[in-house]
Design a protein around this nucleic acid. Sequence first.
DNA 1: TTTTATATAATAGTATTGCTATCATAAATA
DNA 2: TATTTATGATAGCAATACTATTATATAAAA
Lengths: 223, 223
Amino acid sequence: MNLEVQIKMNPSLYLRDPELSELGKNIIKYSIELIQKNGFESFTFKKLAEDIGTTEAGVYRYFENKHKLLVYLVSWYWGWLQFQINYQTNNVTDPIVKLKKIIKILASNVEDDLTTSHVDESLLYQILISEGSKAYLTNHVEQDNKQQFFKPYKDLCNTVGDMILACNEKYKYPHSLASTIIEVAHLQNFFMNHLPSLTDMSKSKDEKEIINYLEDLVFKSIQ
Amino acid sequence: MNLEVQIKMNPSLYLRDPELSELGKNIIKYSIELIQKNGFESFTFKKLAEDIGTTEAGVYRYFENKHKLLVYLVSWYWGWLQFQINYQTNNVTDPIVKLKKIIKILASNVEDDLTTSHVDESLLYQILISEGSKAYLTNHVEQDNKQQFFKPYKDLCNTVGDMILACNEKYKYPHSLASTIIEVAHLQNFFMNHLPSLTDMSKSKDEKEIINYLEDLVFKSIQ
DNA sequence: TTTTATATAATAGTATTGCTATCATAAATA
DNA sequence: TATTTATGATAGCAATACTATTATATAAAA
């Protein structure tokens, strides 16, 4: 038996758990491909169903609508990233080294994690960059928040915030700086690739330049 | 005759210039109200037409689709803000004072500017916080960019970047820091109001705390 | 084994959205 | 006065965002 990493998901996000059937796993797999390829606006359950070889009604049995599916994917990603961060910084004791490691993970292009067979993390990372903020930039953000849809994101912010405080317990804005790092990592990546004049990254489009920028920003901020 | 501030707009954004007719001005005025109230996703030209007292086809004569209208509003805002910044920092010589002033303008709740009768800037500011990034977070960002849709935004980033360099000409990331300030000002405002645990702002929800955070971030970064 | 619950496929149908086209009329301009 | 131009009114159409129904296959429970 293969050891598969399981990310525990909020059941309010789905009607039927997509991890528990082939069709469900295909919905996840193909929706990631389709959203990454054509963007969230042009993504429909009908197109997804055609790609999978099922019907629109079949997809609706798993997810109420495409927004819930997006929130599911985004939550899954943050849950997976939390796991990666815990795993990769587990044996690091120096908080500064740890925080640098976290920044690197947040701003690096992700490689496909083969222990999660139905999720291509490198595609999902691209979705997070372009579509991630649409998960919360809605008129119903507060209802969604009450249903805990953003818990994995908040947990990650807390992890980063705690690490900031471990570096400097007197720093006044650990949560704001944490959410800033996470968002700016994606924003600068998007700008670097699509609106480069909004950044100082060279034409090589190397994520390492974003990591350098973020490290400079963070460690000067917290001293 | 009243002196009205006119923001010069990119003609590719509209089919007919909305500033030149009553109907056009109503499209701007009521779209701002409707998007601010119900969010961009649920906004349709049909609902807008009903509010104005015209027909859907009437709105389509001015704007190709709702995305172009959003980009129009966002561009208008950045153009207007550029004007405000130039005007309000005109007589300031010290670049540090000037940069502080800019940060304050970027992160402050805007009051309605009475010299622009068909635009309520305080509502438009709310739209920018919740919907602004959707103007560029699309699959067609590069085509839109080629058509100069984001020029006012880039111009503003350049202004801020120049001021950063005026404070410290050796700072390595003036454009990235500029786009970071602009985006984070809105993001932290959104989080403060809807997902407060992602920030360190108190329950008073005072924008001044965001200004303090940004000042701390910027001036520690550039020394 | 038989019964029964469960998942999926196939199909249909409906309201709304996004958009285009046509025609009549009113107002502004030449 | 003739004519261009903007608007209003209406129609229509393809795609989107769903919901409902029935049939069939399959796996679990009796």
